[in-house]
Simulated assay, not measured.
Amino acid sequence: MTKTFMMPSETAVQERVWMAFPPEGYSLGEGDEAKHEARSTWAAVAHACARFEPVTVVVDPAEVHIARTYLSDEITIVEAPLDDAWMRDIGPTFVHADDGSVRGVDWVFNGWGAQDWARWEKDARIGSFVAGLADVPVVSSALVNEGGGIQVDGLGTALATETVQLDSGRNPALTKDDVEREFARTLGATHVIWLPRGLTRDNERFGTRGHVDIVAAIAAPGVVLVDDQQDPAHPDFEISAEIRDVFSRSVDALGRPWRIVNVPAPTVLEDDEGFVDYSYINHLVVNGGVVACSFDDPNDAVAVKILSEAYPGREVVTVDARPLFERGGGIHCITQQQPSPR
Rank of each mutant, 00 (worst) to 15 (best):
D153G: 09
E273K: 14
E182M: 14
T76Y: 00
H332A: 04
D123V: 06
P172I: 09
P264D: 11
L284G: 00
G29N: 08
L166Y: 09
T4L: 11
V285R: 00
N110L: 12
G127R: 02
W42T: 00
V45H: 00
G188H: 12
V179I: 15
N287I: 03
E162G: 06
D99I: 09
V57W: 07
R125K: 14
G330W: 01
R209P: 03
R342Y: 04
E146M: 08
R314F: 06
D271R: 02
F325G: 02
I306W: 00
D227N: 15
D153T: 12
V152L: 08
Y278K: 00
D60Q: 06
D213A: 05
D231H: 12
D177W: 03
T69Q: 15
K35E: 14
A50F: 05
F183A: 07
A48I: 08
A301H: 07
H211Q: 14
S294H: 02
P23M: 12
Y311S: 06
T186N: 14
A44W: 03
K176M: 12
N282A: 07
F206G: 03
T208R: 08
W18P: 04
S140W: 06
V226M: 03
R39P: 02
T190R: 15
R88K: 11
T157P: 10
P61V: 10
A97N: 13
L307I: 07
Q115H: 10
L195N: 13
Q14T: 01
A80D: 08
R197G: 06
T163P: 00
H65E: 15
P232H: 02
W107T: 05
E63F: 12
N203S: 10
E182N: 04
F206W: 12
T175S: 15
D32E: 15
Y280D: 01
W258P: 10
G255D: 08
G148H: 04
Q338H: 07
P235R: 12
